[in-house]
Design a protein around this nucleic acid. Structure first.
Lengths: 225, 225
DNA sequence: TAGTGGTCTAGACCACCTG
DNA sequence: AGGTGGTCTAGACCACTAG
């Protein structure tokens, strides 16, 4: 095995050895210098390959301790969160959204975002049929401009994407029975099973927004393994 | 801005410029050689930093066309799929599982996995309370050893993880009303909203397994943004 | 403390693609 | 046709940490 010249080829070969149990789970594999010698390439190239496998969760690397094959690779899935408009448009449907009067929403206590809070509820429609009910709360102290933004032009979803880059946060997915208000807006039976997406978005130490997205019944969220 | 020595510092600085609208969305940023000159480092280092930002979805890079700030960075979330045993153990609960007779499951048509199919239904319990109902189908043609494996020792979940590395696949999450059989196993009301996780796992061209995981009511699935 | 991975450099060649 | 990012090299120094 010499003359390998690309890091992708090394990823392939190392993967093959792990899959073939030549390097079984938990095993220490040769260090970068030895692999470079075996493959006839530079250590940088081996490093690039092993780093990719480590990011993928197949290998575990520590200085001095060396590189190990993970015992039970935790699998990871990626969820691509599209801009709602595009998600609907891509199915060929026409996108519209309707801001909802706060009075039409259930009276719940505002989440503590650590600042003044603005509530912007919104219904997203695909071909004029309810698709997604959005209950959004924005920390106007941490998001300057949000208090005066016109969410009739660009919905809160897109306005925030454009104006607040580099956020982190958490998402929780759950199944919930539709409340009376949700059933009315989504035009479904009360108690119907809804896929609910709760998200909190942060930047630095500040909590910028919290949003609850209730999908119309039957929605399937796709992830890639 | 010279003397920057680490690719992480370059990531920070480039992020800052994008956030500060010095390089607004859609803009072409300087090429690697120019940035290397500005930062007083080598092109490799700039490359490493910009590559990281591109993987993160903030930049879009094409040969000859250059590097652009994405207009509307699609946000991505990562779902870590734990081994079910560990997921339960980590909450401090005791893990057990019970294989279910196929006769106790709804009679549905087997998914087409392209080979002989084995059905292995299983109920996962946390402190002896129903936690997750697993309806698994394994392609025994593509997974040698599955036909003779003893799933009473290691459940299908863990057996597959240990024996079949390097898989890809798709996941669909949805909310569904509990059927009579699901309600019986999960000890909940029929019609209760369940978070359902459908997964298909592939390797190369072969479909290895399909699984439907129905979580007990109230379960929240956490993702990181 | 010694061995490992992490990173940076200066240079080079190449694949790709836009103008 | 020429500019851009993608990659590889050979070498070097450093940070971390297991033994």
């Amino acid at each position: 095995m010499s003359g390998v010249q690309s890091w992708q080829a090394i990823v392939e070969e190392v993967s093959r050895r792990i899959g073939a149990r030549i390097w079984p789970p938990g095993d220490l594999i040769p260090n970068e210098a030895d692999l470079a010698a075996e493959f006839g390439c530079s250590r940088s190239t081996v490093n690039r390959a092993l780093r990719a496998l480590a990011e993928q969760g197949v290998l575990e690397r520590r200085r001095k301790a060396g590189t190990r094959v993970c015992e039970m690779p935790e699998s990871r899935a990626r969820l691509h969160i599209p801009v709602i408009r595009e998600q609907i448009t891509q199915t060929g449907a026409r996108y519209r959204f309707r801001l909802l009067p706060v009075g039409q929403m259930p009276r719940v206590t505002a989440p503590d975002l650590g600042g003044a809070v603005l509530r912007v509820p919104c219904l997203h429609l695909a071909d004029d049929r309810p698709f997604l009910l959005e209950d959004r709360w924005i920390n106007t102290t941490a998001v300057p401009g949000a208090a005066t933004a016109d969410f009739r032009q660009a919905n809160a979803n897109e306005w925030l994407l454009r104006h607040v880059p580099f956020t982190t946060g958490e998402i929780a997915l759950s199944a919930q029975a539709a409340s009376a208000a949700e059933a009315r807006h989504l035009e479904c039976a009360q108690g119907a099973a809804l896929l609910v997406h709760d998200r909190v978005t942060r930047q630095g130490g500040a909590t910028l927004t919290a949003v609850r997205l209730a999908h119309a019944p039957g929605y399937r969220m796709q992830l890639l393994l």
